[in-house]
Computed example of a mutant assay.
Amino acid sequence: MKFPDTEGYFGQFGGNHYPPEVWPALEELTSTYRLLRYTPDFQHDLETVRVGLQGRPTPVHFLKRTTAEVGGARIYVKREDLNHTGAHKINHCVGFALLARKMGKRKLIAETGAGQHGVALAAAAAYFGLECEIHMGEVDMVKQGSNVGRMRLLGARVVAANAGQSALKEASDAAFSAYVEQRDHALYAIGSAIGPHPFPMIVRDFQSVVGHEARGQFLSLNEGVLPDHVVACLAGGSNAMGMYSGFLDDPGVALHAVEPLGTSDETGKHAATLSFGTLGTLHGALSIVLQQEDGTPSQVSSVASGLVYPGVGPEIAMLHEAGRLKVSAISDEEAISTFFRIAKSEGIIPALESSHALAFAIKLAERSPSSESILVNLSGRGDKDVDFVLNHHWDEDDS
């Protein structure tokens, strides 16, 4: 929590690189958040909605059958998939909605990839009586049709982004443009720990409930002993920073960031930013970016819509530069195989995003002694992915 500094930097990463016309709105958000975040009234309202609407706390659960099948280290999961709307995203969405109401804003604007952030924000907006506008890549709208329907059912206006790859990066561009036009009456509820100051700080703070809960729960389950490994999938970094927040100051706990390798690292059909990215600016912040020689973001690929992003948040970049993160990558094929495996072995259908983290945890468990333990952020459930997976990756061997 020492970071960011007063200019919004995490070491050399972060800052505010949005156009000057937006600075007053961002400064208003920063000052309001700093004023309210630790006040008893704000914390009481936040806790009320976390318990009543979200269903927090979510449990830590031992994957008994998978651990027995794999051998080696014990695998536990933080069940963020059990949140209302199906993922960790609602942790910061209710926070943004509460901030908007305190600031006198009547509308929330955001982007979404897999649709989980969009559904969570639509639910939060409905709860607080706010308008909601969600921008989503046209490709993702087809792939995640059930989530589009849920957003609309909850009262949100869903706008198709059809430039470039028609995916998460383009949805973010469109959402920002809409925010610039409507900033007097709307608040941009960004979907991850990315963007200009103060967004990475705000999203991290609201998501830190995941790591702090998980830490206490794991200690209770394991007689006061911390996990040896903490694992999260990585794109922008909201679920990762939420999970890491509970363990950053524990040098004996290895923090693993699992990136999407897509179909190939050789052809560039991946979204493994820390593995292959370089210093650059994306969506208003200096960070690590997958980019072409001219500095424009590269086209990226993953079977998980929520991981199709060519950058990472600035705090993730700082932790990586400091050597605090162990970075690995999981292919589409490995993630899909794990999607089926966890469903059959544990009765849990994980999101394809979370399946990347679980696939890595299984590989890690296989090469680790049985005395060690692994805690995975199961960041979302896979209801949204079922039709896509069955239509494109199901065969008789899976029945």
Rank of each mutant, 00 (worst) to 15 (best):
G137S: 15
A186F: 04
H88E: 01
S373Y: 08
A335T: 09
A178Q: 10
F199I: 05
L53T: 05
G295Y: 07
H229A: 08
G236D: 00
G262R: 00
H270A: 05
R204V: 05
V159T: 02
A322W: 06
F96W: 07
H117W: 06
K89H: 03
R101W: 03
L187S: 02
F206G: 02
A335I: 06
Q116S: 00
F206I: 10
L35G: 01
V386H: 12
G284E: 13
A322E: 15
A257R: 10
I362H: 11
S264W: 10
F247K: 14
I342C: 11
L82M: 15
A304S: 14
G380D: 01
L168C: 03
H84L: 01
G104Q: 14
L352T: 03
A161K: 04
G55C: 04
G164R: 15
A126G: 09
D228R: 03
G311A: 15
G323D: 12
P19H: 14
S371Q: 04
A160H: 10
I109K: 03
S355E: 02
A317K: 02
I109F: 02
S245F: 12
E353H: 07
A304K: 01
E353N: 13
I330F: 12
D173I: 09
G191D: 14
H270N: 15
A68D: 13
Y188V: 04
L35P: 03
V386S: 14
S287F: 09
A351T: 00
G104L: 04
T30W: 08
V303F: 05
V94A: 01
S245W: 13
L261I: 01
I202T: 02
G52N: 10
A87I: 02
S331Q: 12
G311T: 11
A232D: 13
L46I: 07
L154I: 11
S298F: 06
A178V: 07
G284Q: 14
T263R: 12
F218S: 01
D397W: 07
F3S: 07
P310I: 12
G295F: 10
T85I: 08
L35W: 10
E223D: 15
E293V: 12
H392C: 08
Q12T: 07
L325A: 07
V203R: 14
S371H: 14
V159N: 06
V49Y: 05
R367S: 15
L53S: 08
A272Q: 00
V159L: 13
R367K: 09
V225F: 04
G115T: 02
D45M: 07
S302D: 13
F218T: 07
L364R: 15
D397Y: 11
K363P: 00
R367L: 11
P198I: 13
T296V: 05
S305I: 05
T85L: 02
R65Q: 06
K269E: 14
F13H: 09
